[in-house]
């Protein structure tokens, strides 16, 4: 489904701030793969997601999605088939537009062939209402309210819905529950799992929770210094514990896992 071939990215080349964020990174995700990513600070986790989403073009290498070479495809074009959630819940929705309008934007853009002057129909509103009800946050009765009035958790849940209402080929989650309080985070995570399960979406999820990294999905990737240093799945992964994971990191990276926000339990 997703293939990264020897991608490389250096920021600020030729200056004192030169930073080789990704080096010689290759990855192949099969359709329906749900991979979690962990790694130390500055390992290149977010940068990799950003490269896949098209926030910048890679210096070397190629990116294929569903057989199509998207290495130089513009970011907004990739967004038609790639859903994204950021850590900051404010990034995914337009605060001064209503819940309904935000959903309409997500719905209309992803459904192909709709003309630019199409509007929200009664039928669309019914669909939005049903979908919102699935979040179990009572948002279906607040469709005319501006999104700015919602809490961070509600906004993140809404963003999740917007990103997946028309199922994307690939879903990129960049610590999307990290900024939420524990209760809301659990709720959003549960929703995420449910939606991915239902649509069999191929997904990459960055997390700083070691436990989650092993529990969720079917594959765990570990990154350091702009490379993937560990890639486990299947039986090997099932047997793994958090301490195994830490030990692995130490042996591959030659240092302790250093992430100031890492959660070991």
């Amino acid at each position: 489904m997703l293939r990264l071939e020897h991608i490389k990215k250096t920021f600020n080349p030729g200056t004192v701030n030169e930073k080789c964020a990704i080096q010689e990174l290759s990855l192949h995700l099969k359709p329906g793969d749900f991979a979690t990513i962990i790694g130390s600070n500055g390992a290149g986790k977010s940068t990799m997601l950003h490269a896949i989403a098209g926030g910048f073009y890679v210096d070397e290498g190629a990116i294929y999605l569903d057989g199509e070479n998207i290495t130089f495809m513009e970011e907004y074009k990739r967004s038609r088939v790639i859903g994204r959630l950021f850590q900051d819940p404010l990034k995914g929705t337009a605060p001064h537009m209503t819940i309904e309008e935000n959903l309409a934007l997500a719905f209309l853009r992803a459904s192909k062939g709709s003309i630019p002057f199409s509007r929200i129909s009664k039928k669309d509103k019914e669909v939005f209402r049903e979908q919102l009800a699935l979040l179990e946050m009572g948002l279906e009765d607040r469709m005319k309210q501006p999104v700015g009035l919602l809490s961070g958790g509600q906004r993140q849940a809404l963003t999740l819905l917007m990103a997946t209402m028309v199922p994307p080929k690939l879903l990129l989650l960049d610590e999307h529950t990290a900024a939420l309080d524990p209760g809301t985070a659990a709720k959003v995570l549960e929703l995420t799992e449910k939606i991915i399960e239902k649509n069999q979406t191929t997904c990459l999820m960055v997390t700083h929770n070691m436990h989650q990294a092993l529990e969720l999905g079917n594959r765990t990737l570990m990154m350091d210094g702009g490379r993937i240093i560990l890639d486990v799945e299947g039986e090997e992964r099932e047997k793994m514990t958090v301490s195994d994971l830490l030990a692995k990191f130490q042996s591959f990276a030659g240092k302790e896992l250093d992430n100031d926000r890492i959660l070991l339990s």
Binding site: E75, S79, G92, M97, A106, L108, R109, S114, F117, R119
Partner: peptide, 26 residues
């Protein structure tokens, strides 16, 4: 401003971060 194009224009002014991650071409 209620059409798909109109909503996209409003989103462009409302949240640039969001627009970059959605398929709206600013």
């Amino acid at each position: 401003l209620g059409t798909r194009l109109g909503l996209s224009i409003r989103a462009t002014g409302d949240n640039t971060e969001m627009v970059r991650a959605s398929s709206i071409n600013p």
